[in-house]
């Protein structure tokens, strides 16, 4: 059994478990073997002094749900080897919240253009700074602050 840091319940009654980021992968592997076969989503939350990664798990055989949370400073282990669906969710979390996933096969931005500056769901993201996206000759995106260089 991998130790958990603390337990609580969310407002609708789902169990929330805090795990240290060193134990995260081992803990998730244990849960996967226990029967949590669907990873519903990966979320990142910016609490200003630290970041938090939230995993929603579902077991379709028993109907149990579990929320796993980890406090981090910006990097956690990827769970793609356990659930293939984590691939896009982790890319999105990197894209919008700026949390790196160690061991991810293709950690690129997914919703925003490659080369975008900053992560919009961080609380200190500058909303007044406009960025313009354009295409290079080879079909890749690039971003600039000059309105004449993009749309």
């Amino acid at each position: 059994m991998i130790p958990v840091e603390s337990e609580s319940t969310s407002k609708e009654g789902t169990k929330i478990v805090y795990v240290s980021k060193e134990n995260l992968f081992a803990y998730m592997k244990e849960r996967k073997d226990e029967g949590y076969d669907i990873l519903l989503m990966v979320t990142g939350i910016d609490y200003k002094d630290h970041l938090e990664v939230v995993y929603h798990l579902l077991s379709t055989s028993t109907g149990n749900r579990l929320i796993v949370k980890t406090k981090t400073d910006g990097e956690v282990d990827s769970v793609v080897p356990l659930w293939a669906g984590a691939n896009w969710h982790e890319r999105e979390t990197w894209d919008l919240v700026g949390i790196k996933f160690k061991g991810h096969p293709n950690l690129k931005r997914i919703l925003l253009a490659e080369g975008w500056v900053g992560h919009p769901l961080r609380k200190d993201y500058p909303l007044d700074k406009k960025q313009y996206v354009n295409l290079k000759e080879n079909g890749e995106d690039y971003v600039s602050y000059d309105p004449r260089e993009g749309y």
Binding site: D37, I38, L39, W83, A84, H89
Partner: peptide, 9 residues
């Protein structure tokens, strides 16, 4: 198996 692994619902 693939459907569950990818979180397909």
């Amino acid at each position: 198996e693939d459907a569950l692994s990818y979180g397909v619902t």
